[in-house]
């Protein structure tokens, strides 16, 4: 390391990192721990080990409805968002055109608008076009919110593709469509899987917009929000742990597919 500092300062800085991580992970770990704790009002010392919160949510039809809605929404919006993200990433990769900056702004701006504002705007818009309160509104809204993430993941992958490969296919007589089908898509496939998982995870967690536009089709986070408005209820910890495991699985799958890029590029040069 170039910067010399005395041991004491290094020690203090490293302990500081530890403290910051402790702060960040405290709520995650406590929710995990208290989902198995028998006391209703969690405190130290802990009560006994129990699975009753999990049993409660397992036997609650509202939770199952929410799980179903969340899955439908997450799957549909991740497919749509990844499709749109792919088109956008490919356009950005291959073409330059007038107003391209405006085009990219359109693609990347949604995450900078506060969700509560998007929620109100979507609510008003959907009730104008008459889909308010239907599950489609949630799917459409989540697609808007997720597409930028899908675009970013796929764009990063395209960056690693040699532009000559596509050109070579054209020279060998492939149409642009064929080159897309047999060259580009196979190359970005891992990133497409990665984008699908990532956007699914984003949709699975989003609550503000879903809360405004979902009507009776509550997703899991909306259900959590409504339980929160009621009372201190450790069910939330159990639901939260379930959601955590689901999203983490998706994220890890996304990460694994994102990491096979080096392998992918080798395959492509061999073909």
């Amino acid at each position: 390391m170039n910067i010399q500092g005395n041991r004491l300062i290094n020690f203090i800085l490293k302990s500081y990192i530890g403290l910051v991580f402790l702060f960040i992970f405290t709520p995650i770990i406590t929710s995990l721990v208290f989902s198995f704790n028998s006391d209703r009002f969690a405190s130290i010392p802990l009560g006994s080990f129990t699975l009753k919160w999990y049993e409660t949510i397992y036997n609650d039809p509202d939770v199952w409805d929410a799980v179903r809605t969340s899955i439908i929404v997450a799957v549909s919006s991740s497919v749509l968002a990844t499709g749109i993200g792919f088109c956008t990433a490919y356009t950005d990769f291959r073409y330059t055109f007038k107003f391209k900056n405006a085009y990219l702004a359109l693609a990347l701006l949604p995450p900078t608008i506060p969700l509560i504002i998007m929620a109100l705007a979507m609510l008003a818009w959907f009730s104008k076009i008459g889909t308010s309160g239907s599950i489609f509104s949630v799917i459409i809204a989540h697609t808007v919110l997720c597409a930028p993430f899908a675009m970013a993941v796929i764009r990063l992958r395209l960056q690693q593709m040699n532009r000559d490969i596509e050109a070579a296919a054209w020279n060998l007589g492939a149409t642009e469509w064929a080159a897309m089908r047999y060259v580009v898509i196979p190359f970005v496939k891992p990133a497409i899987v990665s984008a699908l998982c990532l956007t699914m995870a984003v949709s699975f967690d989003e609550f503000a917009v879903a809360w405004f536009v979902s009507g009776l089709n509550k997703t899991i986070p909306v259900l959590i929000l409504e339980i929160l408005q009621g009372n201190v209820d450790p069910q939330i910890n159990a639901i939260g742990t379930f959601v955590f495991i689901t999203t983490m699985t998706l994220v890890i799958i996304a990460q694994l597919f994102f990491m096979i890029r080096s392998q992918g590029s080798e395959n492509n040069t061999n073909e």
């Binding site: 995650i28 939330i236 939260g240």
Partner: peptide
């Protein structure tokens, strides 16, 4: 990727 609501 952990629910912000649950953390709150």
């Amino acid at each position: 990727f952990t629910s912000y609501l649950v953390r709150t």
